[in-house]
């Protein structure tokens, strides 16, 4: 029964991921990506990582992809990309490269075991054995103790991105001064 659920889910994940590449229509590609994200979240659920699963849905499917879709719809890319810029034989070269990448990836995973690559998961497992705490508590504890520096650096990075977006979106008048949008002008 579980094998059936697992394999169906994995198959669905791969099918939607392929859909992102295969669909010529940009909106359909984006929707496939959304479903891929949801399938990955379901995979996390099967691994009993509820918190990570729903954060995945909120952040990727719920926020990032909506912005993607928003931009796609604003640009209104209705016509499929014309195949004119395609190089001759690109399909075959691309396919070959993809297979090569797949084998390199598989080789890499085999050489370095997954536990080495993800010290966070190992640390989490260690904590779980030591205490019977809830998943969220464990994650939070790890995040503000062992990984406090990367955590704070990430927040600084996000802050920089936000300030950068504001600076770029700022409007200026002819003299180069900032135009501040005054709420009092509404309805005036």
């Amino acid at each position: 029964m579980f094998l059936l659920i697992y394999s169906t889910l994995f198959a669905l994940t791969v099918v939607f991921a392929l859909g992102v590449l295969v669909f010529r229509n940009t909106v359909k590609s984006a929707i496939s990506l959304v479903f891929t994200m949801l399938c990955i979240a379901a995979n996390y659920l099967l691994m009993r990582q509820e918190f990570v699963a729903f954060i995945q849905v909120i952040v990727y499917a719920g926020a990032i992809m909506v912005v993607f879709l928003f931009v796609i719809m604003l640009l209104n890319l209705r016509e499929p990309e014309s195949p004119a810029w395609y190089l001759r034989g690109m399909r075959y070269w691309g396919g070959a490269l993809a297979f090569l990448f797949f084998f390199v990836l598989a080789w890499g995973i085999q050489v370095f075991s997954v536990a080495d690559l993800t010290p966070g998961a190992a640390a989490l497992e260690e904590l779980r054995r030591e205490s019977g705490q809830a998943e969220v508590t464990q994650l939070a504890t790890l995040m503000v103790t062992r990984y406090i520096v990367p955590f704070l650096l990430t927040s600084v990075l996000l802050l920089v991105a936000v300030i950068g977006a504001i600076v770029m979106a700022r409007r200026k008048d002819e003299d180069g001064r900032d135009i501040t949008f005054d709420e009092d002008e509404e309805g005036a």
């Binding site: 918190f51 729903f54 954060i55 849905v57 909120i58 499917a61 719920g62 926020a63 909506v66």
Partner: peptide, 11 residues
């Protein structure tokens, strides 16, 4: 979190 995730997908 489940509730927030589901409402965010509803859009």
């Amino acid at each position: 979190l489940y509730l927030l995730a589901i409402t965010s997908v509803g859009v």
